[in-house]
Design a protein around this nucleic acid. Sequence first.
DNA 1: CAGCCCTGACTGACCGGTCAGTCTAGGCTC
DNA 2: GAGCCTAGACTGACCGGTCAGTCAGGGCTG
Lengths: 207, 207
Amino acid sequence: MTSAATVSTSAEERRSELLRAAYLVMARDGVHRTPLARVAEEAGVSKGLLLYHFQSKDALVLKTLEWVLDTTASRIRQALAESSERSAAISVVVDAVWVGPDQNRDFFRFYLDGLEHQTRSPQFEELGDLARTIINGLYREVIESSTTLSGADSEAATTTMRAIIEGFFLQWLQTHNWKTNHQRYRDRCLLAVSSMLALSAGRISDR
Amino acid sequence: MTSAATVSTSAEERRSELLRAAYLVMARDGVHRTPLARVAEEAGVSKGLLLYHFQSKDALVLKTLEWVLDTTASRIRQALAESSERSAAISVVVDAVWVGPDQNRDFFRFYLDGLEHQTRSPQFEELGDLARTIINGLYREVIESSTTLSGADSEAATTTMRAIIEGFFLQWLQTHNWKTNHQRYRDRCLLAVSSMLALSAGRISDR
DNA sequence: CAGCCCTGACTGACCGGTCAGTCTAGGCTC
DNA sequence: GAGCCTAGACTGACCGGTCAGTCAGGGCTG
């Protein structure tokens, strides 16, 4: 059992290394601008190995997308767990989402590359559902734990919250000084999300 | 002069035809998935001609982006002009923006392709500014003409409005049944934008 | 008006390079 | 030594960009 576990773990670990390398270079340079050879180089490995562990470039891209989605959600959940106050949960999430210029820029561009693939290649069909499950699930938890919203109301609030956050990311990305603008857009984003949730909760409690 | 004008007009017209064809196929299939030959085929023209009128594929892509941004803004302004009521301006814009599933899907995917290019290729540096000028300019006009907001307040509201709209588009794009979901997301988007503007105006008038 | 020339839009063949995916041979581990 | 890994040479397809040359039209000259 130990040996089997070691072998499979080692294979898993190797795969993770490859995914990490793939994410690193593909997020920065763009999926369509990144040859497998470049990923292999980054991982210090041959191109053949990538095709050995993943069957095709598309498969590698898909796995990388899933990997980074999982990883990121875990990181944010972690940040959430470390802050005990329920009331400030929204601000904690928004802060955790807006980690930093470079990290956000890479992630979001890669996320958009994923969307490009999802809408044009059958292989990536389920990606939208996966992203929705992970992202909306996370946001909804936060909303239900820190407001009075529930049911269809929290579902609607979740969608709007996601729209606001991703919309701000979109605009921030189009900015020349994305490094210095990061804080400004994060603040505006937090304000918009907070206002929207306060309004939603108010509306509900008014009836 | 007549002949000179005719000549230049004809060249312009031809260029427009090429841009229209380029948009048609590139928006649907994705810039990186579209060879010049495919655009040429769509335009009923040789590949060489594309490189004759535009110097490179990148240049063609950039011009197409600018063309569709201009065209779309004009269309929306038109819709706005045809509705006389000032009070409903927001709902008119949102409706005009959410024209229809196919049109929105093509435009937005192409818009995202533009963003991908902007953040990765120096040639597309100015694209962010151009989009900002056109889109935010349009939204801001509407906000200032239909609310009491002005100055920094309308600027902030504009950014948030754009974030909400584009954020909803992003989520809608990730949906399997984007055709049938179009109306639902449009409605939610309108609600979110209206609420946000009412809240902003209220906040201002409260001080 | 007839012949001429020039211009510039346009074509299609072609080239050089790139890249995903294949294959073979070798090595490491159990 | 059997089976999993890994390397890296190789291939075939594809694609952006070049270039020589065609063709139509529109002046200009005599």
